[in-house]
Design a protein around this nucleic acid. Sequence first.
DNA 1: TGACAAATGCAACTAAGTTGCATATACTCA
DNA 2: TGAGTATATGCAACTTAGTTGCATTTGTCA
Lengths: 125, 125
Amino acid sequence: MERKTPAKKTISEFLNSTVSPVDIEQIIEYLRSKNLKTNKVTVYRIIEHFYKEGIVTRLELGEGKFRYELNRNHHHHLICQKCGKIEDFKDVTIQELEKKIFKQRGFLVKYHSLEFFGICKNCQG
Amino acid sequence: MERKTPAKKTISEFLNSTVSPVDIEQIIEYLRSKNLKTNKVTVYRIIEHFYKEGIVTRLELGEGKFRYELNRNHHHHLICQKCGKIEDFKDVTIQELEKKIFKQRGFLVKYHSLEFFGICKNCQG
DNA sequence: TGACAAATGCAACTAAGTTGCATATACTCA
DNA sequence: TGAGTATATGCAACTTAGTTGCATTTGTCA
């Protein structure tokens, strides 16, 4: 049966406190800042566990590594190519698209990933 | 000025011949099969060059590495979680979404990535 | 054909993520 | 509440994707 360990609790706490998706290193930094002795293997394993449980979502934003965030309500991302800020964006038209894909192609969509890259409001002009 | 080298030509040829996005290793295998002595650094550099020129598109499909395909007309992907087949999918509603994002949020979308994960027709039932 | 910039190859490196195995610890139940 | 045990952790060593510096080769054009 699953156990509530300090590392798990602290990672959950961190994920709850952040707005942008975080990478493994940020998690490790947070644990260190809380004076928890830690280890990347453990962090990878906890995050993988959260991922398998559906607690977190895994994202790739073109960096060659994964980022994670709490799997609250589904949304997409607006990633600024200048300042790197990641905004959330919610929309329902994709659900329509998924239905269409099934009708037209017989492909049953389980989930999707949608990221928009561009220039945020502050970085324009 | 840019040169047409055997490696570049052969990689172009390979990209033209494939339907699914390929990874670096597949490119190296192809070059070997054509008896071109090759080297991963060169392949990375050529692909990066193609990418910067806008000749290829770079994709991440949750594998922890990149895949590439010719930048023909823009489309999305349907990735089967059982057999791994990657189908293309074209749709215009995303363009509408991009306009909406600019109107609502002032975020100027340069490009997006959209992948659908699920079960293809053949793998169902 | 020769000069020169562009392209390649090699070796060594970095960074993300994984594996095996020994040790530590959260939880259960007597 | 304390011992036993499965779960979680830590360490070291590894794999794989991708990068860098530098010396050598090669395509192109005059």
